[in-house]
Every structure is written in C-alpha cells, then in structure tokens.
Design a protein around this nucleic acid. Structure first.
Length: 463
DNA sequence: GTTCGATTGAG
DNA sequence: TCAATCGAA
C-alpha cells in the first residue's frame, strides 16, 4: 500500500508537514502535482508565476527521485477535472493515504473538500496539514476567541505564540527507496507565454542561499533600507514564499538562529507576521477571496470607469514618474518593490479612483510572487476597504513619496529613461517649473483635486 | 463602560 | 492639527 503526497503551494522538500508525515507512515511514497492551466488563468496567475512554479516542480521532482519518490504530473484544465485525474491515479496506484497541506482560497477549499469526500468514499485516508503559516491558521485569536482584524495586536499575540511554542522545522525525508527516474513537465502551457526572465534562481537550494545571503548581508539594515526601491534592501524572497519553495517558518527560524538582533531583523520578522495575518484574514473572512471588500460598507463606493486612465496606469505613462517607473518594473520583471506597491495602489484607488479589484487583478496577472492573501490584503489596505486600513483621509502623495524614498531619482532614471537627464529635484514632478522632456506625458490627473474628491467620496459613505 | 495607545502621512 | 477604529487595559 502506497502513501501519496499531493504537492500544491508547497514546492519544497524541507519543512513540509505533509511530506514528512507521509514518509513517516510507511513505504512506498509517491507524489503528484496537478497542472491546471485553466484554473490558473481564472485565478489570474501570471506567466512569470506559472513558469516559476513549473520549473520548481521539476526541481522538486528531481530531488524526490533521488529519495526514491516519483512525482507524477497530472494534467487537467480546472480543479473540477483535476479531481477525476487524482481519483484515477489513486485507484491505479492503490493509494492508501493521501497527504496535503491546506490552501485557503475559496476554490482551493472547495476542491480539497471534494477531494476529501471522493477519496474517503474509496476507503482512502485523507490527511491534511495546516502548514502554510508559522502559527497554524486559526490559532491566533483575541481573548474573546475572535479573529484579529488589526495587524498590531495580531502580531503581538503571534510573537508570544512563537515564544510559548518554539516551533521547529519538519525534517526533510530520508531515502524511501532506490533512486527513480524523475518525470518532468514541459514548458509553459498555452495561455502563459512571454514570461519575463526569471528574477530569482531556481530551486530550493537557491532559495536557502538567498535567505542566508539576506541574513548575512542585508537583514541588519532592513528597517533603514527597505523603503528605498533603488537600494537592494529587501530579501526578495517573495517568489519562493508565495509558491512554498520556502516556508515562513524556515525564514523565522533562520532569522532567530542567525543571532542577529535589533530593529532590522525584527522589522523583517514583522513582515513574516503580515503574511500570516493576511492568510488568517483569508481564512476567517472568505468574502475577500471572492472580490468582496473586507469592510462591507465600502461596497457602496462608486468607482470611476477604468478607461484610458487604467491603461495609462498599467503601461506606466501616467505622468507621475515614480508610478510609471514602478509599473514598468512590474511589467518587465514580474516583481515590484513593496513601497512602490503601496504608492501605485494608492494612486490607482485614491487619485484615479479606479476599483481596487482591477489593480489587484493586474498585479496578480504580472507578479511572479502573486499570492492571493497578501495581494488582496495589500490592495484593500491601500484602498481603505480592508483591515487596519489607513484612515480614508490618509492618501499618499506619490510625489512626496518619491522625494522621500527615491531622493536622487535613481530608481526613476532606471525605468523612465525619458527623464534621466532631469535634476534630482525636477525628476519627481517634471510638469512643474520647466519643459517636460519629449515623449513623457503630463500628469493624467491633478493630485490635489483628486485627493480631495476621493476623501469626499469616502466621507459620503458615512452620511 | 470607558479610556488609551497605535496606526507602513499629508497639508 | 486632522481624525477612525480596534483591541487591550
């Protein structure tokens, strides 16, 4: 009788609850990965992400093969069809027990429930593991046993849970049998083409090297440097985390074991907490995964028609240099610096007053690290429709942000070469006091007026 | 029940 | 200053 590990958003050998449990149970162990392009497209997966995931699945297949575990690729279009494939696979290989780590999007939960019901009916044990976050999802609750809707108290509770529990890593499995030949999936399925060049190196080993390198080189200065897009101040681990090549738990434990102390590392650990926080929000408030606002009253907002403004935003020709630089970075590399995600999201929702859902989808369609919980959480935060939202009257001024976080215009110059010759002052707002370089647009919206209008629309919600 | 601290700023 | 809101005390 065979145990089967179903890999999904957890493409790693080390610190993987489902894999460890399956290998501890009995031999032999098999593994599978379901290739579902239609579902990925429906979920706005980017080409960059699909490429990243499939390449990492191939790396995983080779690692597992060395341990005597075959990872089989099962092809189906949607989640619904994939369950037929999974069921057939289980019958064909006489699977006794299925193991997987939970995912928390609403379609994923529905799929997992159906998988559980169908396979249980065949007499197969179905074991699921709550492994996506450092503290198991649903563990961190207020004193009234309610989910937190504000980050700071959540993070305090989260930190004390870690102190009390001292989480440890699941060991990577040892050999389960003689080496087998690794199956490999071929290149990008049909809807996903023209992925940008990979931003980060392939494989679990590369992920750990990058984590170690971050801790050695940049963690201490993280708090001071992380907001400057021209500075290499962040960990850039998000593609690995979003797709489970690394776990948040591995990051946390590596940070603690590094012996580094101080504001830098603690600020970074807070980012791991943000990730857990938003996964919990997705879990406790399923409405956010069907494009509904966390704050229901904000559903009454009437957003502008997207039109030409939305096109200009997507393509990086809004006439606001920091916004355009950021949007071009996203489209070209599949990644955007976090400070810029806030600036561009705030600009779309508060200055252009375009529905946050459109921005959320565009980010997903382009990001290599697109992760429903964090992307939705971040967008709703920016749009003031979400948890712990910035008060609606607090609207970033993108020019001010640009002056503060890209003071020499280095980042703008990199992505908006039309403006490269402007001096450090003018580059943030070329329309002010001088001739705009040829080929660069005037601002498509008046920042001051649009800010006032947005605040008024939010104010009107309360009346 | 009420106060109080805190909240990835801007004008 | 502006100013909303949650959670803890």
């Amino acid at each position: 009788m065979t145990e089967l590990v179903w890999f999904r958003n957890d493409l790693r050998l080390a610190d993987n609850a489902a894999l460890t449990a399956a290998c501890a149970r009995s031999k032999p162990v098999k593994a599978c990965f379901l290739v579902t392009p239609g579902q990925w497209q429906e979920h706005d997966w980017s080409s960059a992400r699909v490429q990243f995931v499939l390449e990492h699945a191939n790396v995983l297949a080779r690692q597992l093969a060395k341990l005597g575990i075959t990872l089989s690729f099962l092809y189906a279009d949607t989640f619904a069809e994939s369950l037929d494939k999974l069921e057939a696979f289980c019958k064909q290989h006489q699977i006794a027990g299925l193991h997987f780590n939970e995912e928390y999007g609403i379609n994923e939960r529905r799929r997992d429930k159906q998988a559980h019901d169908r396979l249980s009916a065949l007499g197969i044990r179905v074991a699921k593991y709550r492994d996506q976050t450092v503290a198991p999802v649903g563990q961190i609750l207020t004193q009234q046993n309610e989910p937190y809707s504000v980050f700071t108290p959540f993070s305090r509770r989260w930190r004390s849970w870690i102190e009390e529990t001292q989480p440890t890593l699941y060991p990577a499995p040892s050999s389960m049998g003689p080496e087998v030949e690794a199956e490999q999936t071929d290149t990008l399925p049909a809807p996903f083409k023209d992925a940008p060049n990979p931003l980060v190196a392939n494989g679990e080993d590369a992920a750990h090297q990058q984590l170690d390198n971050f801790l050695e080189e940049r963690a201490k200065g993280y708090k001071d440097n992380r907001d400057f897009p021209a500075v290499d101040g962040t960990s850039q681990l998000s593609p690995y985390l979003a797709n489970g090549v690394l776990s948040g738990r591995q990051c946390l434990i590596a940070a603690r074991q590094s012996g580094i102390s101080g504001d830098g590392i603690e600020t970074w650990i807070n980012e791991i907490a943000w990730r857990d926080f938003y996964v919990n929000i997705l879990y406790h408030y399923p409405r956010v995964s069907v494009h509904r606002a966390f704050k229901p009253e904000t559903e009454a907002l009437v957003w502008n028609e997207p039109g030409e403004h939305f096109e200009a935003w997507k393509e990086g020709r809004t006439g606001i240099p920091i916004v355009d630089a950021a949007m071009r970075q996203l489209k070209t590399t599949g990644w955007m610096h976090n400070r810029l995600r806030m600036i561009t999201a705030m600009f779309l929702t508060k200055n252009l007053f375009i529905d946050w859902r459109l921005g959320e989808a565009w980010f997903m369609q382009n990001l290599v690290d697109g992760f429903l919980a964090s992307n939705n959480g971040g967008w709703q935060w920016s749009a003031s429709t979400g948890t712990d939202a910035a008060p609606y009257f607090r609207v970033f001024n993108p020019v001010t942000q640009s002056e503060r976080f890209d003071p020499t215009g280095e980042f703008i110059r990199q992505w908006v070469p039309e403006l490269a010759k402007l001096d450090n002052k003018r580059i943030h707002e070329p329309s002010k006091g001088g001739v705009i370089p040829k080929g660069y647009p005037r601002p498509i919206v008046d920042l001051k007026e649009s800010r006032k209008e947005a605040i008024a629309r939010f104010q009107a919600l309360k009346d």
